[in-house]
Design a protein around this nucleic acid. Structure first.
Lengths: 276, 276
DNA sequence: CAGGATATTTGACCTGCATCAATGCACCTG
DNA sequence: CAGGTGCATTGATGCAGGTCAAATATCCTG
């Protein structure tokens, strides 16, 4: 068996050349991470060969477990920019793991005021809000063209009865969301505009960095209005606060593009005690 | 078999007189709800004969399931007023079902600002914040003498692998907390002081009413400061807003005692469209 | 590439709530 | 029951951020 395209190895895949039936040569794509050859099925939709796996799935699974885990994902779904993945009131059937793209989730009061409850990126799980009432309790809208893995919740519950490690993982994801939401409550209830925006920028760039992007530069996927809605302030205040940070040489801003020049200064604004 | 104390029936229990061993007469306490006679064990700590069961446990279980469910509760724990049930950073081992009393949960920023994230009463489950990191991520403090059922999370996970209905229930409870938190985010991000307080009072009295208390009167268990921390406003503003509602004859207030005179007016403040 | 729609920035002004301060009320304890 | 302590109320004043408005910048589409 001969390895073709050695340069591909660092991506986690290898392509072997092998004699197939009838003496023909054929290529086998081999997933190094999962230690599995890839069949048409695993190529179609498979966690076992997904490079985001560490972000949305439990770690430390063996081959068999990994292969079974592929069953939680029913299929993939593309969502165009501006389109909802689900809306408040939609029947709940599945959780979604974001493969590519960027989402916002929001709730709104009866009289139409919108509160953005979060921004989600690749590897994050959305849809947890729907479990209580079998209907979604918020809206999830793609801020750029996106693709998600559809994970029917019935599958998740079924498999997590079989795999304690998956069960624990699901619980952790939900608990993490609760803790995150309570952090936002702290932000909204106690912090001033500058502190909120500093926290927001630090959080965003940290999550992007964990996905292999720069730790200082980013292109925001959301409008000033959406940032403001998330942080409980008006879009003008968001813009002014950006400008203020910029004047102080803490960041550089040009519309949606933001570069953090002094991360320490941002941390100090967010938490004055952190630098002692 | 002869029913003694018929007046007791409406409480959900019956006491029968029966001939026991050696010809002696003995009394059997019978739980009508669970359709189980009560053994010394079930009297000690048992969900099957707990009148809060509908609040914290799944409904529609049969006898056997109910009896097994009793195993999730390891023991009970009393918490005196002002004492923490757990603190931020404590190792996470268990969820707690509140039997009696009243709690607040809070997170705080490094520089000491506190955000109350919720108030919890009988039948509600606390501790979910600890699952992500195996350490608690907030503080839970009793606002009055309280008693909780300690449910080791290992027991819960073990049993919910066996009982899909329990598994689903746990998921729903966590999802409900996520949805609740997002509602608070809406409150904090978009509402004005009067709207926040109106929403707070309506929510509180509704939950108390679901537990058999008045739908219009209540005694607040928390200080103005704690209400303010929860609602993202200063205690003076809380007090002023109470006074304003009182002047408008929407409520009657005397310190911690509150009577809602015009629930419709409160609903209208909270949501101006709700009365059309 | 014109022209319109949408997003962002900036300025001027205003208001809801915070802040500071004093007083009042309820409850506890010696 | 006097005096202390913690909590609640109320008043006076200030300011962070909201509101309104106008100018730019960017993007989309025919």
């Amino acid at each position: 068996m001969q390895v073709k395209y050695p340069a591909l190895l660092q991506s986690g895949f290898a392509i072997y050349q092998q004699a197939g039936k009838h003496g023909k040569l054929c290529l086998i794509i081999y997933n190094l991470q999962a230690r599995l050859p890839m069949t048409p099925e695993t190529i179609k939709v498979a966690c076992s060969n997904c490079n985001l796996r560490e972000l949305c799935m439990p770690v430390g699974l063996n081959r068999d477990e990994l292969q079974k885990l592929d069953d939680v994902v029913a299929n993939r779904r593309k969502v165009a920019q501006g389109e909802p993945l689900y809306r408040n009131g939609d029947p709940f059937t599945s959780l979604y793991a974001i493969r590519t793209g960027f989402f916002k989730t929001s709730v709104s009061s009866e009289d139409g005021r919108e509160q953005v409850t979060g921004f989600q990126m690749a590897g994050e799980i959305i849809g947890l809000d729907g479990i209580t009432s079998d209907r979604h309790n918020c809206n999830a809208v793609a801020l750029e063209d996106a693709e998600v893995c559809v994970m029917p919740f019935a599958n998740i519950e079924h498999l997590s009865r079989e795999f304690p490690v998956l069960q624990r993982h699901v619980h952790k994801i939900m608990s993490r969301e609760i803790v995150r939401d309570q952090g936002v409550m702290l932000l909204l209830g106690n912090m001033r505009a500058e502190e909120r925006l500093a926290a927001f920028l630090l959080n965003l760039v940290q999550r992007l960095h964990a996905r292999g992007f720069s730790r200082s530069e980013m292109v925001l996927r959301m409008t000033r209005d959406e940032i403001g809605s998330y942080l409980g302030m008006k879009l003008e205040t968001v813009s002014r606060t950006f400008s203020k940070f910029s004047e102080e040489n803490i960041i550089e801003v040009k519309q949606r593009w933001v570069k953090i020049l002094q991360p320490e200064a941002l941390k100090k604004i967010f938490n004055p005690d952190s630098c002692n």
